[in-house]
Design a protein around this nucleic acid. Structure first.
Length: 142
DNA sequence: GCCAACGTTGGC
DNA sequence: GCCAACGTTGGC
């Protein structure tokens, strides 16, 4: 089981839309490192859903339900996408400001590589972030 | 293969 | 709106 974080600008695709759609193809990734991360995702992996630009906070958790396949929005089919399914909302969204204030979280890619839109999260960081957000084991087990 | 110019992302 | 941090493009 691996953990990840994906970013979305709420103006383009928000958490509310993710909840409504339930299962959503995560398309449009056009960065090699992000693509590599997409291709490392396995069915069942859990992923934080982060609102960039507006909000700047972790607002939800989704699960990988379809592993990497060619992005249908790419005419050349050389980029990849995955399908994600809504798992739960984060009761108290974890803001970037909070994350930056916690010494243990200075190594997360969200801070170190601010432009990367798909990134791995270590199990330790995952637990810490879940605690901050008020997520319990029961919330992510279904 | 180097590097300047330009474009994009995302925080502030 | 500005700017830092990247990524990409194209001339040489």
């Amino acid at each position: 089981m691996n953990y990840w974080l994906i970013k979305s600008e709420p103006d383009a695709f928000s958490w509310q839309e993710q909840i409504q759609n339930n299962i959503e193809p995560w398309t449009g990734i056009r960065n090699h490192q992000a693509k590599k991360n997409l291709q490392s995702m396995k069915n069942g992996d859990l992923t934080f859903f982060y609102h960039s630009n507006v909000g700047k906070e972790i607002v939800g958790i989704v699960r990988i339900v379809k592993e990497a396949y060619p992005d249908p929005t790419d005419p050349d089919q050389k980029w990849s996408c995955v399908d994600v399914q809504t798992v739960c909302s984060v009761p108290t969204p974890v803001t970037l400001k909070q994350i930056k204030a916690i010494p243990e979280l200075q190594e997360v890619s969200l801070i170190k590589q601010s432009r990367l839109s798909v990134m791995p999260i270590t199990p330790e960081h995952w637990k810490l972030l879940c605690n901050l957000g008020g997520i319990t084991q029961a919330d992510i087990k279904k």
